[in-house]
Simulated scan of single mutants.
Amino acid sequence: MDGMHYEGMIIRPPSEADSILLQVTIGCSHNKCTFCGTYKGVRFRIKDQDIIDQDIAYAARHFPFLRRVFLTDGDALIVPQPRLVDILQKIRRAMPWIQRVGLYGNAKSILRKTPQELAELRDLGLGIVYLGVETGHPETLRAIRKGVSRERLIEAGQRVREAGLKLSVTVLLGIAGREQSLAHAQATGSLLTAMDPHYVGALTLMVLPNTELGDQVRRGTFSPLTPLELLAELREMLAHTHMSRGLFMSNHASNYLPIKVKMPTDKAKGLAMIDAAINQQVPLRPEWMRAL
Rank of each mutant, 00 (worst) to 15 (best):
M289W: 10
I87A: 01
T188K: 01
I91P: 02
H252W: 04
W97F: 12
S29E: 03
L191V: 15
H62C: 14
L208E: 14
L203K: 00
H252D: 10
R285P: 08
E155Y: 05
M4A: 09
T226I: 12
K269Y: 08
P14C: 01
D215R: 10
M95Y: 05
T140D: 02
D2P: 09
H5L: 11
K108D: 11
W288T: 14
Q216W: 15
L182K: 11
A57Y: 09
E236W: 00
I274W: 00
A143V: 13
A272Y: 00
R67D: 12
L111G: 08
E155V: 03
I259W: 02
P258Y: 05
R61K: 13
S190G: 01
C28R: 00
K269W: 07
V169Q: 01
C36L: 05
M1C: 07
L228N: 06
I128Y: 04
T34F: 06
A291S: 15
A60K: 01
A187S: 13
P64V: 06
K32A: 09
K113V: 08
Q186Y: 09
Q158R: 15
Q281K: 11
V133M: 01
P286C: 15
A156P: 11
E16I: 07
L124N: 14
S168P: 03
Q81G: 00
D2S: 10
S190D: 10
A176T: 09
Y104M: 08
L292C: 04
L167N: 04
L165D: 02
R245E: 11
D123E: 15
L234F: 05
K269V: 09
I52K: 01
L111N: 11
A60Y: 06
Y104R: 03
H242S: 03
K262T: 08
G105P: 14
V148E: 13
R285Y: 11
M249A: 09
V148A: 14
G164H: 08
T114Y: 03
T221G: 13
P80A: 02
C36S: 06
M237W: 00
S254R: 08
I144W: 07
L121R: 11
L172Q: 04
D48S: 14
